[in-house]
Amino acid sequence: MPRRSPALDRATPSAIAEAALRIIDEDGPGALSFRVLAERLGVSHATVQRRCTDLAGLLDLCTDHLARRLPEVPAGTGWAEAAELRFTALYRLLVAHPGLLVLRGSRPWTGRELLARLVEPSLADSTAAGMDPAEAMAVYRGMYLLTLGCAAFVDHRDPAAATAASRTAIAALDPEEFPVLTGALPRVLPVLTDHAVYAAALRRLIDAARPDTPQQ
């Protein structure tokens, strides 16, 4: 019978992901390293590396850990409602962990859990509603890119700081060169960190792609 490793028992994929996300959230994306993560878990650098190989593997681990929290949409849910449920849930997860978006950069999000809980069911719903696979993927990508962009644009965990920074930057502009931005500053600022902007944009994409919507 093979001997169990206490270090590997502590450094489970779930424990590694949770610890990595805490480091990113509390200390910023630049603070994450295998050394810091190993110290947080009380194991060796080599133990962590055995679990996820490199930074890309670690980020995949974190992404899939979060993806397990995405909802399983009940069978029979309408296409538009299912799309809104899935992507709104993804948005909330990403907004809660903006540092993860910074670290992932342009890396593809191809973890099994994300594919199983978001991509595959989204495509399955769209093809069942009458879209061909290419159209279904184009619709999915539109909503996916909107979600990533809105989540990454500003740290929504501290909207007051984001608003203050934007106010300072816009107030420094020349009113003659930027009359709309400077003249409408009180009305422009709240929209920069407003979750309702994402929700409205997502609904417009869904309405435009809805399978029962007549095409122009």
Rank of each mutant, 00 (worst) to 15 (best):
80 A>T: 11
114 L>T: 05
84 E>Y: 12
105 G>R: 10
88 T>E: 15
45 H>N: 11
134 A>L: 12
62 C>G: 07
40 R>E: 15
41 L>Q: 03
30 G>A: 00
25 D>T: 11
137 M>A: 10
138 A>E: 15
42 G>C: 04
102 V>A: 09
113 E>G: 00
111 G>F: 02
80 A>N: 06
114 L>V: 09
72 E>C: 13
97 H>W: 14
57 G>A: 03
96 A>Q: 05
66 L>F: 13
67 A>C: 02
134 A>D: 12
39 E>R: 03
101 L>Y: 06
84 E>T: 15
58 L>E: 00
33 S>F: 06
84 E>G: 14
122 S>N: 09
31 A>I: 09
40 R>C: 09
131 M>H: 06
113 E>V: 08
103 L>E: 02
70 L>V: 07
42 G>M: 02
42 G>K: 01
120 E>I: 04
40 R>T: 15
117 R>L: 11
71 P>E: 10
99 G>V: 10
79 W>Y: 15
74 P>L: 04
126 S>M: 01
69 R>I: 03
61 L>A: 05
130 G>W: 07
32 L>F: 03
128 A>L: 14
58 L>D: 00
121 P>C: 06
106 S>E: 13
94 L>D: 11
83 A>M: 15
51 R>F: 03
43 V>T: 00
118 L>C: 07
126 S>G: 02
116 A>R: 07
120 E>F: 08
99 G>A: 08
77 T>W: 04
132 D>T: 04
120 E>V: 09
73 V>I: 14
119 V>I: 07
31 A>F: 12
60 D>Y: 05
137 M>S: 02
103 L>Y: 00
35 R>V: 09
48 V>K: 01
41 L>S: 05
71 P>K: 14
135 E>F: 05
102 V>I: 14
55 L>Y: 04
95 V>Y: 15
105 G>S: 08
49 Q>I: 02
26 E>A: 12
125 D>C: 09
36 V>S: 02
127 T>F: 06
120 E>T: 13
116 A>V: 01
99 G>Y: 13
121 P>H: 01
138 A>R: 15
109 W>R: 08
103 L>G: 05
126 S>F: 02
112 R>N: 05
139 V>T: 13
109 W>F: 14
99 G>N: 11
65 H>F: 01
122 S>P: 07
42 G>A: 01
79 W>G: 03
127 T>S: 03
80 A>K: 10
135 E>T: 04
88 T>M: 14
136 A>H: 07
33 S>V: 05
26 E>W: 07
116 A>C: 04
40 R>A: 15
60 D>V: 05
119 V>H: 08
45 H>M: 13
43 V>G: 04
34 F>N: 00
103 L>N: 00
112 R>D: 08
77 T>F: 09
34 F>Y: 01
43 V>D: 00
62 C>W: 06
132 D>I: 08
83 A>S: 12
125 D>P: 01
90 L>N: 08
75 A>C: 01
131 M>K: 03
59 L>M: 01
38 A>D: 01
37 L>N: 03
89 A>L: 11
132 D>N: 10
86 R>Q: 15
110 T>C: 08
103 L>R: 04
136 A>S: 08
